[in-house]
Structure formats: structure tokens, C-alpha cells
């Protein structure tokens, strides 16, 4: 199991994280969530060549269910890709799986949920994690706010207003070294647009926990290193799954 420092779960730390997210700038950076050596290993396994694992063709969020295998989303450029790994499937990379569970645990505590929420099929939401690499300019992820009553063309579930919800971004590459000019843009609680890496100090291995209902996008990436580009892991949760489970139970 991958365990980050247990200090992160102390109530003072959780209070500081919550204050930053809900009253402060809208995000909190957990520095060195992953040691540099672990980042390097993940880069080698996932970003340095073809991944030796079968990923299914693209599945729409609305179609994801407990029978959905892990799948690949290809982007505008051949190098743009997102490996989508469902927590209910066999892990293609045990270490990555553990890291995802640990990151999700921190989010759970911040959101006031049980530690292992969203890692069990019976939960109201179920976790997927996506290892994404962007190497091309333009919008990789269009500007939007989640859980803010906005229309979503392909939602992973209900997007009713829920300001408690957070998303996590685990950075796997460095602004200025692997990519520049663009990347993860985020509008903070004061309405200012920030570019992580340039306006907020983050490095590969840092985990950013941020308020999901703030406007955000990924755009204008210029890769300095085509293998890594702007690489990160995000952690969406699906609530269509509960309905799927209920339907199965009714059969």
C-alpha cells in the first residue's frame, strides 16, 4: 500500500486544507505527495513508450458501468491521451492503484466522507482515475465548472450544485521543463484565473486538491518534452454506478 504521511489526516491539517479550499484561494497544494523517484518510475512505465496493457476503445461517461474495462481516450494530437482506469477492474499498475486510493482518501476526509468512500462498488460514487498527457495546444479540456448546474454533454453523474465537491490533480511533469505557455487553468475564489506551474508553484509529485465548482480548463500546452508534456492524474467519480447496481439487484 502507498501511504502518504499520516499527519495529513490530523484535524488541524484538514482544517487548514478546508479553509484554503472553501474560504481561501479555492485550492491546496500537498507538496511532494509522491517522491521524485516514484514520479520517475510512473513516467517510465506510462509515458516513455507504448504501454503493455490492453486498453479498450473510448467509452462515454454516461455509458460507464461495472462491466466497462479500462479504456483509452485519444486526443487531438497522437501524443494526447488519457488512460482511464476503473477502480473495480484489475489494476494494470498496482503502485498506481494504491496511489489513487491514497489520494482519494485525502479527498474523502476533506469532503467529510468515510476514508475509503468511492473505492467500493456499493458506494454512492465510484472512483475512476485518469492518467492524462497533453502535448498539443488548443483546448484539451474546455472551460467549465462541475457541480454548478451547468449543462454537461457527457456527465459522469448528477451535476446539481454541490460546492463541497473537490477534484484532485496529481502533477506528473514540470512547468518550464516538460511543458510551458499553458496547462491547468483555474479560476480562484476571488475570480482570478491562474495557471498552475506559472502562477502557483507546483512540481511533479505535488497533489493539488481544488474546488470542483470553480471554472477550470486545460489549454494552450506547448510541450518541451514530447514524452511527458503536461502529464497528470485526475480522479473523477461516477454516480451512474449506483443505478446500475440497483438495476442488477432488481433482476
Amino acid at each position: 500500500m502507498y501511504n502518504f504521511e499520516e499527519n495529513i489526516y490530523q484535524s488541524e491539517t484538514i482544517r487548514d486544507i478546508r479553509t484554503a479550499i472553501y474560504q481561501g484561494p479555492g485550492y491546496f497544494v500537498i507538496k511532494d505527495f509522491l517522491p521524485k523517484q516514484a514520479v520517475k518510475k510512473i513516467q517510465q512505465r506510462w509515458l516513455s513508450g507504448e504501454v503493455d496493457y490492453y486498453f479498450d476503445r473510448f467509452h462515454k461517461n454516461t455509458a460507464v458501468n461495472f462491466h466497462t474495462p479500462n479504456y483509452l481516450i485519444k486526443g487531438a494530437n497522437a501524443g494526447d491521451r488519457s488512460y482511464c482506469i476503473n477502480i473495480w477492474n484489475q489494476a494494470p499498475d498496482d503502485e498506481l492503484h494504491d496511489i489513487a486510493i491514497e489520494a482519494n482518501k485525502i479527498r474523502n476526509i476533506v469532503e467529510g466522507r468515510p476514508r475509503y468512500f468511492a473505492t467500493r462498488n456499493c458506494d454512492e460514487l465510484v472512483l475512476q482515475y485518469r492518467l492524462s498527457r497533453t502535448v498539443s495546444p488548443g483546448f484539451a479540456v474546455k472551460k467549465h465548472a462541475d457541480f454548478f448546474e451547468e449543462f454537461r454533454p457527457d456527465p459522469a453523474g448528477n451535476h446539481a450544485f454541490d460546492p463541497k465537491r473537490c477534484q484532485l490533480t496529481l502533477f506528473l511533469s514540470d512547468y518550464g521543463k516538460d511543458y510551458h505557455q499553458g496547462g491547468f487553468h483555474f479560476v480562484n475564489n476571488a475570480g482570478q484565473e491562474l495557471l498552475f506551474g506559472r502562477d502557483v508553484a507546483v512540481a511533479a509529485g505535488d497533489l493539488v486538491i481544488w474546488k470542483y465548482s470553480n471554472i477550470h480548463c486545460v489549454r494552450e500546452v506547448t510541450a518541451l518534452n514530447d514524452k511527458t508534456g503536461f502529464s497528470r492524474i485526475i480522479f473523477p467519480q461516477f454516480d451512474n454506478m449506483a443505478k446500475d447496481k440497483l438495476k442488477e439487484g432488481a433482476r
Binding site: 476526509i109 467529510g112 466522507r113 468515510p114 468512500f117 467500493r120 456499493c122 458506494d123 454512492e124 449506483a242
Partner: peptide, 20 residues
């Protein structure tokens, strides 16, 4: 609780001051 929350998945929940 929300409609989707099922009892087997939520033996514990947290009030907003983080008490279980």
C-alpha cells in the same frame, strides 16, 4: 441522505464539522 446513498455503503457518515 441523498437518494443514491445506500445503507451498506454508509454505515458512517460525517456531519459538516467532520464528526463521524
Amino acid at each position: 441522505l441523498p437518494h443514491q446513498a445506500k445503507p451498506e455503503g454508509s454505515l458512517f457518515y460525517r456531519s459538516d464539522d467532520n464528526e463521524e
